[in-house]
Every structure is written in structure tokens, then in C-alpha cells.
Design a binder for these strands. Structure first.
Lengths: 143, 143
DNA sequence: AGGGTTCAGTTGCTTCACGCAACTTGCTAT
DNA sequence: ATAGCAAGTTGCGTGAAGCAACTGAACCCT
């Protein structure tokens, strides 16, 4: 997606995609979850054009998903770190990864697991008590 | 994102975004969850250019996310319905919606709830027993 | 002092995707 | 006969993405 708005779309999905829906943006965020922080790291890892990377990082900072932090002076060098807002994209990325694991990747190259005991972690729909909810038992209602 | 591949990205997120990462694609899927099925419905609801809509629908069918179903003969007319693969994008859309609700939309216009009792439904990271997992307690490991 | 390297971009140019509006096809209704 | 509807298709202009070379500020080596 481009950075145009999805005008008239009064939906949080559209609002979210205005911020992270452009080409490369979610992959940059995923790279950040994998520990990458620097321009060169993102560029080499993704093979993205440098001008486009510069553009995306600027927008991500502008939108509060990354912060630009100086990590050395003389010469001034900056790196990019996820903010709490950016870190909260983990769920959306995990959901996309899970779908990709199920339907696209024959053998998923990475997995989420709990550090403490190594058990696999997945994304699920739950009620306020944490009880899983059947997909068929869900409705999407206007407020 | 465009329909090019994210070559060299051996990640399910990249694989998933190759199928649903183009501009408009996820909004079309979201529209389908809201009950829309026909070309004209999508077009009017989204305000998307007709050639682009035609292109996206064709790719979504090609990728098994929608199926093209004839709903009348003379003249032949087709509509688009989510397949199980497409319906499984619900989680990713819900996660994006939740993030948008939290950080972008002041007052979310729509909510997910359980049909049977009307309780709100949210997306969460859980272990195999359905127990919630702390975000800080998660690691992303290569297989 | 001069030449090479690193990092974070910027610039210029080309190619490709998107937006827009008009047109087409096959059929029905008046 | 003409108008209308639904699902596209076509042609053309604009804007975003890809590519590679360049910049600037500092460091390192001989």
C-alpha cells in the first residue's frame, strides 16, 4: 500500500494499514524484532533500495513506531529502535507469520516460543478470561 | 507492497505479505469478512480503481484466498467468497484492528465479540494450553 | 599528506504500479 | 429502441519504486 489514506474507511484495519501497509514497512519492523537497528543492517538484510528505506524509516519515526537514537558522535550515527507502539505490532506480525506457516511456507524457518520453558507460542482469539473463542462464534459489530 | 517477491526473505511474514501485502488486498479481505462478495460492492465500499480491483481479485483467487462463484447465468455473473485459507486471515486482520484501535483510532468504530454472550474478543499470544504468554517471555528462534 | 573504508543517507534516472474515466459485453426491463 | 445493470477491460497520465552512483563526516593505514 502507499501512504495515501484509505479515505472514507472508518476502520481500524485501514487506519493501521495507513501506517504500516506500505511495501517493505512490516518487513522492516520484523527485522527490528530480530534485533536489527541500523540502516546498513536493514538494507543488507532486505535488499531494499536505499532511498526507499530512508523514506520508510522516516515515516516509521514520524508515526512513533521507531525512534531514531544517536549511537555515536563524530561522525553522528543514528540507529532505529522500536517504541512500545512498534513493539505492539508483534501480535500482528505473529498472526501473519502463523498464517504464512500454515498456508505458504512448507517448513517454517522460524518459530515463536516461550523463553522460560521453550513451549511453542501461537496467536489466538480469546475472551476477557483468556478462554479461546471459536471463529464461527465471532461477530464484528459496529459500536 | 507490490506483487514482487521479497526474494531471499526466508520468512513466513515475507511469504504471507507476498500474497496479501499489496495495497488494497487486506482491505478487500476485510470487506469480505463484513459480508461483501461482489465486484461492485467492493468497488463502492473501498473506492478502489476498477482495474486494480480486478487485478487484486484475480490474484486472490489464484492464491486460493477467494473463490470465484457464479451466482447467475445469462448474463454470467460471478462473486467472490473467502475460502478456509482466506477465512484464516481473520486472526491477522483482528490483530491489525486491535493495534489500530489502540494506537490510531480514538474510538474504534467496530468491535469483535462472541455471538453467544456478546463478550469482547481479543487477540492474544498463548501457549499450547491456551495460557497467555508475556510478550517479554517470547523468543523468535530459527528451526 | 594521500588513499581506502564505514555509515547514513541523497540524487538522478528509469521502470513499473496506481488512479481515473470511458468503453464493452451480455442480458433484462420499459 | 433505449435505458440500465454488473463485471469487468482499455488507454493514458501520474506517482512510487528500483538501481547505481555520489556525498559528507570521520576514521585507519602507510
Amino acid at each position: 500500500m502507499l501512504n495515501r489514506d484509505y479515505d472514507g474507511q472508518n476502520c481500524s484495519v485501514a487506519r493501521a494499514l495507513e501506517l504500516v501497509g506500505e511495501r517493505w514497512t512490516l518487513l522492516i519492523v520484523r527485522d527490528a524484532f530480530l534485533g536489527r537497528r541500523r540502516f546498513e543492517e536493514f538494507q543488507e538484510s532486505l535488499g531494499i533500495a536505499r532511498n526507499v528505506l530512508a523514506d520508510r524509516l522516516a515515516k516509521l519515526v514520524e508515526n512513533g513506531i521507531f525512534e531514531r537514537v544517536r549511537y555515536q558522535e563524530r561522525p553522528e550515527r543514528y540507529e532505529y529502535r522500536l517504541t512500545p507502539k512498534g513493539r505492539d505490532l508483534r501480535l500482528a506480525l505473529a498472526a501473519l507469520m502463523q498464517w504464512g506457516d500454515t498456508y505458504v511456507s512448507p517448513t517454517p524457518p522460524r518459530r515463536l516460543r516461550r523463553k522460560s520453558d521453550g513451549k511453542p507460542v501461537r496467536v489466538a482469539l480469546v475472551d476477557p478470561d483468556g478462554t479461546p473463542v471459536e471463529p464461527a462464534d465471532i461477530e464484528n459489530v459496529a459500536v
